[in-house]
């Protein structure tokens, strides 16, 4: 299997005064061209760190990141500069990720200038106008400053900036969670349209499960730095295997007032990611936890074709006979 992006055993640790913080611990996955991989999990589970490590905004502690087959775990400065043309990021907060002292035009043109794509002023203006049209920003905003625009328009600037270099791969770190609900739908639709037009590949990081269901092909569920479940979007919502995923899905309030509610209420909160003890990280909150869970780390195993889960008791929890693989 060779996808556009392959991540193998990626680790990102931070040294803190209280010990080593395992932000991302042994994460592996691959993403195909044109696909959207959703990354879900609660705050503090390491999903943003994962996104930033993949495009080398943070240096990985260990592991392998292959982009188009090329190992980029430790690229030279020059090579990284070249690679960044193809991988971009859209940040969560359109209020703090845009320079308040630059106009919309300057912000969108900046990557073009850095990569010396066009030094000709007229060509640059034309490209900025094109990009603004692509993301649905009216041309009259070209000389405004970010603070003059609403959140939805600002996020469009962030998207236009990310698209400026025609990347093939974009990490979207909670791109709609800072937006008003009515604007969310517009931005999500825009991102889907752009993906179709430009054959983009997304890693879509979010804590909002209804958004991720909507936009992703495949999903990985993270808990305290580790991946606990990995499968297609449809499969995850119809047949979750990991106890954490089950609890997460059942916690979402349903707007269908006639739906039968069978809620698994998790006790407690995320434990600390600093120097985690061996064993399943979810064991303390898991209703199915057995002794084995606090002894060794569960490995990712393919329970059904294309559906992986990391749980010692996955068969017992889901009443699957042991032979069936």
């Amino acid at each position: 299997m060779s996808g556009l992006l392959e991540v193998k055993n990626l680790k990102k640790y931070y040294e803190t005064n209280r010990g080593t913080l395992h932000a991302v611990d042994d994460v592996s996955f691959s993403v195909e061209q044109g696909e959207t991989l959703g990354v879900v999990g609660e705050s503090g589970c390491g999903k943003s760190t994962l996104g930033q490590t993949i495009i080398h905004l943070r240096k990985p502690t260990e592991g392998e990141i292959r982009f188009r087959g090329e190992d980029m775990s430790n690229p030279s400065k020059k090579r990284l500069h070249e690679l960044r043309r193809h991988m971009q990021i859209i940040f969560q907060d359109p209020f703090s990720s845009l320079n308040p002292r630059m106009t919309v035009k300057q912000i969108i043109a900046e990557p073009l200038k850095i990569y010396k794509i066009s030094n000709d002023k007229a060509a640059l203006d034309k490209r900025v106008a094109e990009l603004m049209e692509t993301v649905g920003l009216a041309n009259r905003f070209v000389n405004t400053y970010p603070h003059e625009l609403d959140g939805g328009r600002r996020q469009r600037i962030g998207i236009a900036r990310a698209l400026a270099l025609e990347p093939s791969f974009i990490v979207c770190d909670e791109p709609v969670s800072a937006l008003d609900v009515s604007i969310q739908a517009q931005v999500l639709n825009l991102m889907q349209d752009l993906q179709e037009q430009l054959n983009l590949t997304y890693i879509f990081i979010t804590h909002d499960l209804s958004v991720v269901k909507h936009i992703s092909n495949n999903i990985i569920v993270m808990y305290l730095g580790v991946v606990v479940e990995k499968c297609s979007s449809g499969e995850l919502f119809s047949n979750p295997l990991h106890p954490y995923t089950k609890a997460l899905l059942s916690a979402i309030p349903h707007s269908d007032i006639d739906a039968v509610k069978d809620r698994i209420l998790l006790k407690g909160e995320l434990s600390s990611p600093i120097d985690p003890t061996p064993g399943c990280r979810f064991a303390k909150r898991c209703i199915y936890a057995t002794e084995a869970c606090s002894v060794s780390n569960p490995k990712m195993e393919e329970v059904y074709s294309g559906h992986m889960a990391a749980c010692h008791n996955v068969r017992e929890v889901n009443t699957i006979p042991h032979a069936a693989v």
Partner: peptide, 19 residues
């Protein structure tokens, strides 16, 4: 349309319809 514009876990839609 307000209800339709919100992503909802219990609905299966390919495209949201913003107002």
């Amino acid at each position: 349309p307000l209800f339709d514009s919100l992503p909802d876990i219990s609905k299966n839609v390919n495209r949201l319809s913003p107002i």
